[in-house]
């Protein structure tokens, strides 16, 4: 049976959609069958980031309303045969879907796919409630900024009260140069407040902007630091025994980056 993982954050613009696209692409490139669901109804983005916008025929709302079977709505990514996208509707709003409908859809998908990754909208209202309804686990994306961490803390509280006990942190857009100058929150600072397991740290990397605009995922870019970080994250999702060790390896990885910065 497949696993349903929601990618959420509370605050907008911290990298939920990019994270969803990279994790999905990474899992699919390892041969796992994946469905990505864009739960951000009305502000459809994931299809654009994945370069699949031109192939949308049916969307999430069509599926839950029974206008089509979910198989008709799944867009298969030609680059990765195991990667599928269920796009959000752009002309509806969050109330077009209910948490019960999401639970039903997710349980149908778990029969057939290894991973169902849900891209959650920002906020804590209806869209958030829909996105987390069918999830078994959650990935909270935060950037090392006080506002993002505060919102992440709220989200972790809401996830726990919704009985999602397995909650992981991805700290996104870390700037080693700022940390070295003591001007950015460190992973330790953030974990001190959030007190949840760390799935990975993703350095700020312009490859993200470049690949995103091209409709590709940085996770497949051999030279991108963020891509390498996402490959580690994907490895940890597949093998739950990896995390604790690999977080330290991240330290080594960050140290390497710091060295490069120092040379520069």
């Amino acid at each position: 049976m497949g696993e349903v993982i929601v990618v959420t954050s509370g605050k907008g613009g911290v990298g939920k959609t990019t994270t969803t696209a990279n994790i999905g692409t990474g899992l699919a490139s390892m041969g796992r069958s994946v469905v990505l669901i864009d739960a951000d109804i009305g502000l459809r983005n994931l299809d654009v980031v994945m370069g699949l916008e031109n192939r949308i025929v049916y969307d999430l709302v069509d599926v839950v309303e029974g206008k089509c079977r979910y198989k008709q709505a799944l867009i298969r990514d030609k680059r990765y045969p195991e990667l599928h996208l269920l796009a959000a509707a752009q002309t509806k709003d969050k109330s077009a879907v209910s948490p019960e409908q999401m639970v039903k859809l997710c349980s149908q998908l778990t029969d057939e796919f290894d991973f169902i990754i849900i891209d959650c909208p920002a906020g804590i209202e209806q869209g958030f409630k829909n996105a987390i309804a069918g999830a078994h686990k959650a990935i909270v994306v935060a950037t090392p900024e006080v506002s993002s961490v505060r919102d992440a803390d709220r989200i972790v509280g809401l996830l726990k009260s919704a009985d999602i006990s397995e909650v992981w942190l991805i700290l996104n857009r870390l700037r080693p140069d700022l940390i070295r100058r003591g001007e950015m929150m460190t992973l330790e600072d953030v974990v001190d407040i959030l007190a949840i397991d760390v799935l990975g740290v993703v350095p700020d990397d312009e490859a993200i902007v470049v690949t995103t605009n091209r409709g590709e995922a940085a996770v497949t870019e051999a030279k991108s630091p963020a891509g390498a970080a996402f490959r580690n994250i994907v490895a940890r999702i597949v093998d739950e025994n990896v995390p604790m060790l690999e977080v330290q390896e991240d330290g080594g990885f960050m140290a390497k980056i710091k060295k490069i910065f120092r040379k520069g």
Partner: peptide, 19 residues
Amino acid sequence: RSGQTIIQNGSVVVMGDVN
């Protein structure tokens, strides 16, 4: 966590942080 509230007629002990 952020957004959570305890209102208590009496005393409160928290085994954790108050964020």
